[in-house]
Amino acid sequence: MKTLLNLIWLVFAGFWLAFGYAVAGVLLLLPIVTIPFAVASFRIGAYALWPFGRTVVDHPRAGVGSALGNILWILLAGWWLALMHLCTAIPLFVSIIGIPMGWANLKLIPVSLMPLGKVIVPA
Rank of each mutant, 00 (worst) to 15 (best):
I44E: 02
I44T: 12
G45R: 03
A46F: 12
A46E: 12
A46S: 14
A46D: 12
Y47P: 07
Y47A: 01
A48Q: 13
A48S: 15
A48R: 11
L49A: 13
W50Y: 05
W50M: 03
W50S: 03
P51K: 02
P51R: 04
P51T: 01
P51C: 04
F52Q: 00
F52L: 05
G53S: 09
G53K: 12
G53F: 08
G53C: 08
T55F: 00
V56W: 03
D58Q: 11
D58Y: 07
H59D: 14
P60Q: 07
P60D: 08
P60E: 04
R61Q: 14
R61V: 12
A62H: 03
A62R: 02
G63M: 02
V64D: 00
V64Q: 00
G65L: 09
G65D: 06
S66D: 13
S66Y: 09
S66F: 10
A67K: 11
A67V: 12
A67G: 12
A67W: 13
L68M: 14
L68Y: 10
L68F: 11
G69Y: 05
G69R: 03
N70Y: 02
N70E: 03
I71T: 09
I71C: 15
I71Q: 13
L72T: 14
L72M: 08
L72P: 15
W73T: 01
W73C: 00
W73Q: 06
I74G: 07
I74S: 09
L75C: 13
L76E: 05
L76Q: 06
L76N: 04
L76V: 11
A77N: 10
A77P: 12
G78K: 03
G78S: 06
G78T: 09
W80D: 10
W80G: 11
W80I: 14
L81Y: 10
L81A: 06
L81M: 09
L81D: 05
L83A: 15
L83W: 14
L83Q: 11
M84S: 14
M84P: 08
M84L: 13
M84Q: 15
H85N: 07
L86W: 13
L86Y: 12
L86Q: 08
C87F: 15
C87L: 15
C87G: 15
T88Y: 00
T88L: 10
A89E: 06
A89I: 03
I90R: 00
P91S: 06
L92F: 05
L92I: 03
L92D: 00
F93T: 13
F93G: 10
V94Y: 05
S95P: 12
I96E: 10
I96C: 14
I96W: 15
I97H: 13
I97M: 10
G98I: 11
G98S: 13
I99C: 11
I99H: 10
P100N: 02
P100A: 07
P100C: 02
M101A: 13
G102N: 13
G102K: 07
G102I: 04
W103Y: 14
A104T: 07
A104F: 04
A104D: 05
L106A: 07
L106I: 07
K107C: 02
K107N: 06
K107R: 14
L108V: 08
L108G: 10
P110W: 02
P110L: 02
P110N: 09
P110F: 02
S112P: 10
S112H: 02
S112C: 07
L113M: 13
M114Q: 08
M114H: 06
P115E: 00
L116H: 05
L116I: 04
L116W: 08
L116E: 05
L116P: 00
